[in-house]
Design a protein around this nucleic acid. Structure first.
Length: 735
DNA sequence: TCGGTTCAGAGTATT
DNA sequence: TCTGAACCGA
């Protein structure tokens, strides 16, 4: 019976799927069938009765990945996947904490703060404590707190060796106390609190350790320190952890991911079975050769080489443009011809290193009338009007949620201004109450307004107590005055529609997966009563921010950052802006292993392409309101020459990008003329000229200032950064 | 409470 | 250059 399940797997995939119940590390290269191996492994364990569906825990980073796993599993096995523990780290921790809220020291109705909620809670904390937020910027404090939590550290455990950090630690402790008072947890707290629950509560820990004989982890290279600790704790000494990841695709160090977890896991669990999935089913040979050659420049790797049974395919096309505008114009032409050849727009991706780069491209596409879709943007549950409605719902569920209270106490406006709120906050502080509970402490007209607001919340709570979720939401958006408020606005129509969509989302939530799944999971463990549908919906809204932007369904070109492209694949891929300072990004140069992470990012970008890959860079680019002259990214030079096809004349090897090459006597004019840099003749140098410096190497002059002995040049030395040099001192050679 | 002005900052992002 | 946030005046 398992034959059908295993049919079509290659030897390595088969070996991985059918490994004995031991710690295993699967190095799964891009396009090597990673998700298939993961889901088939689960199906195989169940089908061969090595595990029951309840005995398996599978964890991912995104809801999308979790959903895909569930869907594929459902297609493989005739089982009910609903009660299974397949989800994101945060989703699973939420589930555990709901079931054991008392042991975890949380109210049953605890709310989850998203990043924006957390920031406003921090701002409020600083204000209340009279802290100078210039000296202690809320964002920095937020990063500090999250960083500490993601390392598994409470305020008391953070090492302090300077007064500034000491203050941060003090504020961290105050922040945690505030959250506890208000019954809210931030994202990192979900994990840390869950970790502490398991660490301190032996019966609970044993229960889950015994229950989950198999723990499967997707994208293991993206785990942070706390997530790895959590996995170790849950696995205990028995569970077989099946970790799947690719160190070459580790691109999230900046948000705490620790690739070192892979090597640590191999060592700490004495992994006997490291399996490499290196056969790639996605790309043609030249594309893989480029990826392999590039990533070989990284020193710290577990080591892997992708190969394909397909042919070499087309060469990788390289284009040098005179400017960012010309790069976009070329891209438009190329896309047009791809479309003319019958390729669907959705099969073409335009990738860039940073979001700001999409502007120029969008502009060109828009003018050319080519439909496109930009990834990344406001998501449904992040929209202001939706967050407002959710704040009302949160107050119904938990009146102590001061963040929610402040968000809507005067929205729509009901005559409760800053002064009143200050009084209220003072009263709350003095009495040790929540804002909601302190309303009686404010007198006069303002007090009456506040009381009316609390009355509204109370009556909504009582009157909707037994209504279906969708009707609760409907009552809230209606009686809060939100809908009326947006109706009255000239451009509020879309917001009204989003509020109505929220009612639909609530109905869908009850009907579908979410609530039923939460309920069964909790019930199965018999710890706590059922969470209300409302509580479930609010968690859902926090943990799953929803799709970003609409326009789906339409066949459109796909525009996104390289990060956003991870996990996706396209027939044709454009990697744009391949310039030093942009990709690799200059900010990464100050970071430990920054360049290697940028290179992995480039590796991810290259391996998105199935059949056709374009690389492009521009001689000049508008950045922060200034024209910057860049030099070609080193990454292009790290690719195998033979697999590249230059669409523009190749400039002299080693010369870097020689801007304004047409200035040189006898120099061939570039195919695409550059935007003429305004030549200022100072001491014989000119903007755009390539020069060589003894220490910094080759660079491009981007600015000339002063004269005589004070003449200075600003020079972009690429990886060495931009330097300002005195021409009378620096000995520059023309390159 | 709104709307305009000013100012700083500008990298990637899921939960 | 462009954006978002903070701030100030009506």
């Amino acid at each position: 019976m398992s034959d059908r399940l295993l049919a079509g797997l290659n030897d390595k995939q088969l070996a991985a799927v059918t490994l004995p119940a031991q710690p295993a590390l699967i190095l799964a290269g891009a396009g090597s069938g990673k998700t298939r191996v993961l889901t088939t492994r689960i199906a195989w364990l169940i089908q061969t009765h090595q595990a029951s569906p309840q005995g398996i825990l599978a964890v991912t980073f995104t809801n999308k990945a979790a959903k895909e796993m569930v869907a594929r599993l459902g297609a493989m096995l005739p089982i009910n996947t609903r009660g299974m523990w397949i989800g994101t780290f945060h989703g699973l921790c939420n589930r555990l904490l709901r079931a054991h809220h008392r042991d975890a020291g949380l109210p049953q109705t605890f709310q989850i703060l998203d990043t924006a909620d957390q920031l406003s809670a921090i701002k409020r904390l600083l204000k209340g404590a009279g802290i100078d937020d210039e000296k202690y910027p809320p964002r920095n404090l937020q990063a500090f707190i999250n960083g500490a939590k993601e390392s598994g550290l409470r305020a008391g455990s953070v090492e302090v060796d300077d007064p500034y950090t000491r203050k941060f630690v003090e504020l961290y402790a105050m922040y945690d106390a505030q959250c506890q008072r208000e019954g809210v947890v931030d994202f990192a707290e979900l994990l840390l609190r869950c970790y502490e629950l398991l660490a301190r509560n032996e019966p609970t820990r044993r229960h889950y350790q015994q229950r989950f004989g198999h723990i499967l982890v997707d994208e293991f290279q993206d785990t942070n320190t706390l997530q790895y600790k959590w996995l170790k704790l849950l696995a205990g000494s028995h569970a077989a952890i099946f970790a799947v990841g690719d160190d070459d695709q580790s691109i999230y160090a900046f948000r705490g991911a620790n690739v070192g977890n892979m090597a640590d896991f191999e060592r700490e669990f004495r992994v006997a079975n490291v399996i490499r999935l290196e056969q790639n089913y996605r790309s043609h040979g030249n594309i893989l050769d480029a990826a392999n050659a590039l990533i070989r420049h990284n020193a710290r790797r577990l080591g892997k080489n992708l190969w394909t049974a397909e042919g070499t395919g087309e060469p990788v096309r390289v284009f040098e443009a005179g400017s960012d505008g010309l790069e976009a114009a070329w891209l438009v032409d190329e896309v047009k011809s791809l479309i003319a050849d019958g390729l669907a727009r959705r099969e073409v991706a335009v990738l860039y290193r940073s979001n700001a780069q999409s502007r120029v491209i969008e502009h060109a596409l828009f003018n050319a009338g080519i439909a496109y879709r930009v990834y990344g943007g406001l998501r449904f549950f992040e929209r202001a009007e939706v967050k407002h409605a959710l704040a009302y719902l949160r107050l119904i569920e938990n009146p102590a949620d001061d963040t929610a209270f402040l968000r809507v106490v005067n929205f729509p406006p009901r005559g409760i201004g800053a002064r009143t709120l200050e009084q209220l906050q003072d009263a709350a502080k003095a009495g040790g109450h929540s804002l909601c509970a302190a309303v009686g402490g404010v007198a006069g007209k303002a007090g009456a307004n506040l009381a009316a607001f609390v009355g509204l919340i109370d009556s909504l709570r009582f009157e909707t107590a037994n209504l279906p979720l969708a009707e609760i939401v409907e009552a809230v958006i209606d009686r809060s005055g939100l809908v009326a408020h947006y109706r009255a606005e000239r451009e509020g129509q879309e917001r009204v529609e989003n509020l109505e969509e929220l009612v639909n989302a609530a109905a869908a939530f009850v009907a579908e997966d979410g609530y039923a799944q939460d309920a069964s999971g909790t019930q199965a463990d018999g710890a706590a009563g059922l969470p209300s549908p409302l509580a479930g919906f609010l968690s859902h809204a926090s943990l799953e921010a929803g799709e970003n932007q609409a326009a789906e369904g339409q066949d459109a070109l796909q525009l996104m950052t390289v990060h956003a492209a991870k996990g996706l694949e396209f027939h044709a891929v454009f990697i744009t802006g391949l310039e030093e300072g942009l990709f690799p990004h200059e900010n990464s140069m100050q970071e430990l292993d920054g360049l290697e992470e940028e290179r992995r990012l480039m590796y991810v970008a290259i391996t998105r392409a199935r059949r056709r890959l374009y690389l492009s860079f521009a001689q000049s680019r508008m950045l922060h309101g200034q024209t910057r002259y860049g030099i070609r990214s080193r990454f292009i030079g790290e690719l195998p020459e033979g697999g590249l096809k230059w669409l523009t004349p190749r400039l002299r090897e080693g010369a870097g990008l020689r801007l304004g090459g047409w200035h040189d006597a006898g120099g061939a004019p570039p195919a695409a003329p550059a935007a003429t840099p305004s030549s200022q003749h100072t001491s014989g140098y000119r903007i755009g000229q390539t020069v060589r410096h003894a220490r910094f190497g080759e660079g491009v002059i981007i600015r000339l200032e002063g004269s005589g002995t004070d003449a200075r040049a600003k020079i972009n030395f690429g990886a060495q950064g931009v330097k300002e040099l005195l021409l009378s001192i620096a000995r520059l050679e023309a390159a």
